[in-house]
Measured scan of single mutants.
Amino acid sequence: TTVHVNGVTYHFPNPEEAKKFVDRVVKEAGLTVEVKGNQWDVE
C-alpha cells in the first residue's frame, strides 16, 4: 500500500498499517485523504 503525503511517498506492507499511519497524520494535521484503490493521497 502506498501513501502520498504532500508529495512524499510512504510504503506499507499492508493496508492496516497504512490506515493507522493515515489516521494519525490526519488527526495531527487536519489533512484530507483521498483513497484510490491501494493508493492514498493525503493533502
Rank of each mutant, 00 (worst) to 15 (best):
F21I: 00
E16H: 06
H11G: 01
V33W: 10
N6W: 12
V35L: 11
W40R: 03
N14E: 03
T1V: 15
V26Q: 10
D23R: 04
V33I: 10
D23N: 05
T9P: 11
V42R: 07
G7W: 02
G7D: 02
V22L: 13
D23A: 08
K20A: 12
V8N: 04
K19E: 05
H11K: 05
F21T: 00
E43G: 10
A18F: 03
A29G: 12
F12R: 00
T2F: 14
A18G: 01
K20N: 08
R24Y: 11
V25R: 03
E43S: 12
K36V: 15
D41V: 15
G30K: 04
P13W: 07
G37H: 10
V26M: 14
V35K: 05
T2C: 15
K27L: 11
Q39E: 13
D23I: 05
W40N: 07
F21W: 05
Y10N: 00
T9N: 04
H11L: 05
V33L: 09
N38V: 04
H4K: 13
V35I: 14
V5T: 02
N14M: 01
W40H: 08
T2Q: 05
L31G: 13
N38W: 06
Y10W: 03
V8G: 03
G7M: 02
H11Y: 13
E16I: 06
Y10V: 02
G37F: 13
V33D: 09
P13M: 11
T9K: 09
A29F: 15
K36P: 13
V33C: 14
K27F: 11
L31K: 05
N14H: 02
E28S: 07
E34T: 14
K27R: 12
N14V: 01
Y10D: 00
Q39L: 11
N38T: 06
T1N: 04
H11E: 04
H11D: 03
F21N: 00
L31V: 12
P15C: 15
K27E: 06
E17K: 02
N6C: 15
N14I: 02
P13Y: 05
T32E: 10
V35Y: 13
V25W: 13
K36W: 15
V25M: 14
N38R: 03
P15N: 10
Q39S: 11
G37D: 13
G7F: 02
E43W: 10
V22S: 03
H4Y: 14
F12H: 00
A18H: 01
Q39N: 11
V35P: 03
T32N: 11
T2S: 08
N6P: 01
H4S: 13
V26L: 14
G37P: 13
